[in-house]
């Protein structure tokens, strides 16, 4: 539901402008996190230009905006590939072989942890726990959630993302 609301908001806008967000939050400062998401959509990643745009829109100092953006790990602080793989290697996932999965992804798509593949198809980010310990190992690809990963099915899943 939440995701849909946000998606609609984004689709309705050609340019970055978090004006409509303002109505939903008590202060401009409170709008900062959703505004950063929007800027990320619009600018592909949170470049200094994107952060400056957010700062200007919300009248929050730009250094503060950068501080917030770098605090949260789910914002893209670097240019990313077409698809973002966020794989958990915390304890449960690690026990079920998540680190092996990292190697497989590297071997198959040529993308190292924290980097982007040369063809720009995938970026791989190692996540802290994504709350799927019961069905470990787990990953997010863009906004899609995949669990119970194995060395076999992970390639099948990722191949779907062109």
């Amino acid at each position: 539901m939440k995701k849909e609301v946000m998606q609609n908001d984004l689709d309705n806008k050609s340019l970055f402008s978090p004006v409509s967000l303002r109505k939903r939050y008590p202060t401009l400062q409170a709008t900062l996190l959703p505004a950063l998401y929007e800027a990320q959509k619009r600018f592909e990643w949170l470049s200094l230009e994107a952060l400056e745009a957010v700062s200007k829109e919300l009248d929050v100092p730009k250094a503060t905006v950068r501080g917030v953006a770098t605090f949260y790990s789910m914002y893209k602080k670097h240019p990313m590939g077409r698809h973002l793989i966020q794989l958990c290697t915390n304890i449960s996932c690690m026990l079920f072989g998540a680190e092996r999965l990292v190697d497989i992804i590297k071997k198959h798509y040529g993308v190292e942890a924290g980097k982007t593949s040369d063809d720009g198809r995938f970026s791989l980010v190692i996540m802290e726990c994504i709350g799927a310990c019961g069905t470990a190992p787990a990953m997010l690809v863009n906004t899609d959630f995949h669990e119970n990963l194995t060395e076999e099915n992970i390639i099948k899943i990722l191949d779907e993302y062109k």
Partner: peptide, 9 residues
């Protein structure tokens, strides 16, 4: 001046 901030975590 708000020129600096703590970044990362």
């Amino acid at each position: 001046a708000y020129a600096i901030a703590m970044t990362n975590r």
